[in-house]
Design a protein around this nucleic acid. Sequence first.
DNA 1: ACCTGAACACCGTTCAAGT
DNA 2: ACCTGAACACCGTTCAAGT
Lengths: 214, 214
Amino acid sequence: MARSSLTRDEVLDAAASLVKQRGPAALTMRGLAAALGTAVTSIYWHVGNRESLLDALVERTVQEMGAISPVGRTPAERIESVARILRRELRERPHLIAMVHERGLTERMFLPAQQALVHEVHAAGLRGARAADAVRAVQFQIVGFLLVERNRERSPAQSPAESELWDPAAAPDDPALARALARPADPERLFLLSVRALVTALLTAPPQGARTGP
Amino acid sequence: MARSSLTRDEVLDAAASLVKQRGPAALTMRGLAAALGTAVTSIYWHVGNRESLLDALVERTVQEMGAISPVGRTPAERIESVARILRRELRERPHLIAMVHERGLTERMFLPAQQALVHEVHAAGLRGARAADAVRAVQFQIVGFLLVERNRERSPAQSPAESELWDPAAAPDDPALARALARPADPERLFLLSVRALVTALLTAPPQGARTGP
DNA sequence: ACCTGAACACCGTTCAAGT
DNA sequence: ACCTGAACACCGTTCAAGT
């Protein structure tokens, strides 16, 4: 039986729930129609085609990523809190984030966070081009880390596992290092450690980064 | 007309060239068969199915990413050179790298680089768990940055461009910052700047990163 | 051992036709 | 304005049949 009235929002809701539960590949026009109890072609009337449907879904996700409210006393602490907030929000929508990324909208999704970062970097005393570099470096690091982390979680056990590499000659005189690398990484700890290290360096380094030695 | 003898390697070569030129989506079994001048079903005999074909392709890419030979005088310089080398290699195979990533093998592809990083971090005097953290932090940063960078290149102009955001009230008292953020980022420069900053901090920071203020 | 065409069950999309 | 089924051109994959 035909439904009385199908709205664009209903279509988007159903599509979002499909993607959230079973990933973007599970979102087929026919499957979506079945879930909605309509003919496939009705969907086309409301959203155009599959591509625009995904666009609309992504657009929604971008909107949902609201403003960022940093917490902490120092700029470094507040930047770290921005990173923490972003990580939490992204981990709640893994599939949708992947779609945002695939569609090249990652940058756009991060505009609110970028504004927060600008404010904090400014508060830390950085100005002009150097402040812009710091903002972008942190932004790239956060996004990049989360992409890598997501990838790790999805991937099955790596074929020649790290353990295989880390008993023999690779780290000859540091068994503790070998053991640490054989263990799985703790992503949250590594994330915060990385952000903290980068931020520390960016907020204290000289304008022109010519100093590389210890 | 049927070909005299089709080999698995020929199939992989043709598939790799298709992917390299026109992306993974352009790799259809039928299209591949046409490019090879065989029946579709012959391909199945040699590589099983599309999934295993992609696996084999990815496996090849992983193998091609050879050993890393760092250059430079200080450990920091040599780590930076590892980053530079990886960036160059990955940028030569954008599609294949994306496939490696999608298949969750990024980590595995980076094992040679990881070994090089271990060596340099050790040379810088770091030991045990702290050395492992440093290696992983740098590794995540490099991979993450390259994923984000690739995404930026592919993406069309972002809808509300950064310029739209960066003339009004966002950076009220730093027009130079606003101008810098309105300009497109120089990825190579940003990449090296980020790696340098992170490495500097990791090689000099105290064991427990409790210090976050300036 | 290797290759083939026919056939199956899926896709996304279009279109003329309904109300 | 909204919904429908039929049809088209694509997929990946299987299978019985060839040599």
